[in-house]
């Protein structure tokens, strides 16, 4: 696969390490009353859809950036890629 790196353009997926569901970026609030249950869900329950999926790819043999890649898991079509720090920064 080719990953459209937002800074570096198309890069071969061999340079990346795959990390699955991008929900890992949204760590629960440890102070919340139901924190333990929220963490259990965060750690153990992931979506694995047949279709469009937002997922984490680490450009380990590249610029070491974490990307949020939107990919159709049934066709491997890639619909977009963003720097994870930008995604998180925008949300914060």
């Amino acid at each position: 696969m080719l990953i459209p790196h937002p800074l570096l353009g198309l890069r071969d997926s061999q340079e990346f390490t795959y990390f699955g569901d991008a929900s890992l970026m949204w760590r629960p609030d440890p102070e919340a009353p139901e924190a333990e249950a929220a963490f259990c869900e965060y750690v153990f329950l992931r979506d694995n859809p047949a279709g469009v999926h937002r997922e984490l790819w680490f450009h380990e043999q590249g610029d070491r950036s974490w990307l949020v890649v939107t990919r159709d898991t049934t066709t491997h079509e890639i619909l977009g890629a963003e720097l994870a720090s930008d995604v998180k920064g925008a949300a914060q």
């Binding site: 890992l24 984490l56 720097l83 720090s85 998180k88 914060q92």
Partner: peptide, 9 residues
């Protein structure tokens, strides 16, 4: 790097 970029940028 994950913690730095994805959790607490």
């Amino acid at each position: 790097e994950f913690a730095h970029q994805c959790l607490w940028p």
